[in-house]
């Protein structure tokens, strides 16, 4: 266990735990946009920054990556921290004016849009938190989508921005996307469309409901060596 102070409170944290988890475990809220407990943190949104001091040196660090240290003093709400979070939200509101989620977080934190910023029209609701990419890689295990380009042209998609061959239509990316940018449509007649690819849905042998893409079921069958036949029943009928 390491002893540290967060916002003036003495806190004990397990060795190897991040400042974010130590704070949250003690009821201290730090806002995040690109963090998900099921995935390795990357520190890309910068909402979770905090100010740390040790040995007379004070600096801003990313709490989702920075590990708790003995004797560290952490300030999660200092002026400098607030300024960074405010800028991040204003920048994201300019990037994704359509995103209700970003607007709501900003509103909660009392941050107004910066009128001087140019608003984008072509970025949709994607804040490039890369949760979708990481989920596809490390949870689903297919790496169907990835990031391409850099800076303002960086975006998420399949290889060469074409429909990703490796996609199994599981929809994990849709589920994990914090802003609702990724669109997945089921037509109710046995088809699902996502990332420009159309999937045939499997029908539950018991209730007849279209419940999962066939490609997903064969992927699971291959990975788990459970015969495909045994997977043809939906979760409610199992």
């Amino acid at each position: 266990m390491v002893n540290l102070t967060i916002d003036g409170r003495h806190i004990q944290a397990e060795e190897g735990s991040t400042l974010l988890s130590a704070a949250r475990a003690n009821g201290i809220e730090i806002p995040t946009l690109c963090h998900h407990e099921a995935l390795m943190p990357t520190g890309s949104c910068r909402m979770c920054v905090v100010e740390v001091s040790k040995g007379g040196r004070t600096r801003i660090v990313t709490s989702c990556i920075y590990l708790a240290e003995e004797g560290l003093q952490v300030n999660t709400k200092s002026q400098r921290v607030q300024e960074v979070r405010k800028l991040v939200l204003q920048l994201l509101m300019a990037r994704c004016p359509e995103s209700e989620v970003v607007r709501e977080v900003a509103k909660e934190m009392g941050v107004n849009p910066e009128p001087r910023f140019k608003t984008s029209k072509d970025k949709g609701k994607c804040i490039l938190c890369r949760l979708c990419v990481k989920a596809c890689e490390s949870i689903v295990g297919v790496s169907a989508i990835g990031l391409s380009g850099r800076g303002q042209t960086k975006k998420v998609g399949g290889p060469f921005m074409e429909a990703p061959q490796a996609c199994i239509g599981c929809g994990s990316c849709v589920y994990i996307c914090p802003t609702g940018h990724i669109v997945m449509e089921d037509d109710g007649k046995g088809h699902r469309e996502i990332w420009g690819k159309t999937f045939n849905m499997a029908q539950c042998r018991t209730c007849g409901r279209y419940f999962a893409p066939l490609e997903q079921l064969s992927f699971i069958s291959k990975a788990t060596k459970v015969p495909l036949e045994s997977l043809m029943v939906c979760t409610s009928c199992r």
Binding site: L128, L147, R150, G151
Partner: peptide, 22 residues
């Protein structure tokens, strides 16, 4: 810098771009 920012984090990707625009 706008064209060389890797685009991973928000302040550099979006902030440098907005500063450039100003």
């Amino acid at each position: 810098l706008v064209s060389e920012s890797c685009g991973k984090c928000v302040p550099c990707r979006e902030g440098v771009y907005q500063m450039y625009e100003i």
